[in-house]
């Protein structure tokens, strides 16, 4: 038997789902950030956390705050970008880059690496250290991108908690590092400041995987633990974006629990190191690949601009109509 409590709980759940959709729609229309195709369970957790922290009772209460309180929105945006990362996270991945991928890159005249969803930059400095040690850094350009400006600013600063350095040192050593890790940063109070030289060849830039376009001719794309937050459809769009941004024989590196094998672009990539989720772009004839669905790339700012133009045009038409009416009456 279904008692009242169950009914209420079903009802509550249904309402919450509606409220979440409205909230995400409001964010998209107002700011152009598109979370509508994010996996819902984890999104819901973060929404509920922000709601509780702000002393709000319902998710729909957040819509007002998001629209009218820019500071609130910025805080919420930071919640929505998962900024949990570490240097040389999954050491075996970096060890594989060092032992297997680097030799493939050595012959190239110039190396372009895209760290997509670089968050607060720990992975950027890890990659810079690795490339420096492999004597490839001078001919490399690293593009470090994230949709969160707050995260990007932290990445640019390159200042981390001194407490975390012990763990990062251990990761570095497991990733095949043989230098003294502490040579890569200076300490001040309880902070570790990464050496300036490590960001010499890094371009930090704001890029949204959901709404922004191709980032050209990369030799390596690293995007780890970002796609797990997207639904299947959005994952496919991003895989397409990566495919179009990679040059021939380019490498795509995903998180340990992510795979391209369930995507419709699976055939466009071969396993390079299967257990580390390192793929290599395979050249196949263009006919087999669908054109990019253009509408997916319309971002909120374009929509806002066009709606302003349309409402201006309507206003002008109205003015014109009333002018015609006056002229007619005068006659």
């Amino acid at each position: 038997m279904k008692d009242n409590k169950d009914v209420n709980s079903d009802d509550h759940n249904e309402n919450e789902n509606i409220e979440i959709r409205m909230l995400l729609e409001a964010i998209f229309l107002k700011y152009g950030y598109d979370f509508r195709n994010y996996a819902k369970a984890s999104l819901k957790r973060r929404i509920n956390q922000r709601m509780t922290l702000s002393g709000l009772e319902k998710i729909s209460d957040m819509i007002h705050n998001v629209l009218y309180d820019r500071l609130f929105f910025d805080k919420f945006l930071t919640d929505l970008s998962i900024n949990v990362t570490e240097m040389f996270r999954d050491p075996s991945f970096f060890l594989s880059i060092r032992n297997r991928v680097i030799s493939e890159l050595r012959e190239l005249p110039y190396i372009k690496v895209w760290l997509a969803g670089c968050s607060t930059g720990e992975e950027v400095y890890s990659m810079s250290i690795l490339l420096t040690e492999e004597k490839l850094y001078e001919k490399t350009r690293i593009y470090a991108t994230d949709f969160s400006q707050a995260a990007l600013n932290k990445a640019k600063d390159g200042i981390y908690k001194l407490n975390d350095m012990k763990k990062y040192t251990s990761n570095y050593q497991h990733a095949g590092g043989i230098e003294s890790f502490s040579d890569y940063y200076s300490t001040k109070y309880d902070s570790a400041i990464m050496n300036q030289s490590l960001k010499k060849n890094v371009t930090f830039s704001n890029h949204n995987l959901v709404t922004d376009g191709v980032f050209g001719e990369m030799n390596v794309i690293v995007c780890r633990n970002v796609l797990i937050y997207f639904n299947r459809e959005l994952q496919d769009n991003v895989f397409r974006l990566f495919m179009d941004s990679l040059c021939e024989d380019g490498f795509l590196c995903l998180g340990s629990k992510e795979t391209i094998r369930l995507s419709k672009y699976s055939d466009n990539f071969e396993d390079f190191i299967k257990e580390e989720k390192i793929y290599k772009k395979r050249m196949i004839s263009d006919q087999t690949v669908d054109p990019v669905p253009q509408v997916e790339r319309l971002d909120g700012s374009v929509i806002r601009k066009s709606s302003v133009l349309i409402s201006d045009a309507i206003k002008k038409l109205d003015e014109l109509q009333s002018l015609i009416n006056t002229v007619n009456i005068d006659r």
Binding site: A39, S42, I82, V84, I228
Partner: peptide
């Protein structure tokens, strides 16, 4: 009824 993963704190 599918799984999702997260590396949240």
């Amino acid at each position: 009824r599918t799984f999702s993963l997260s590396v949240e704190a």
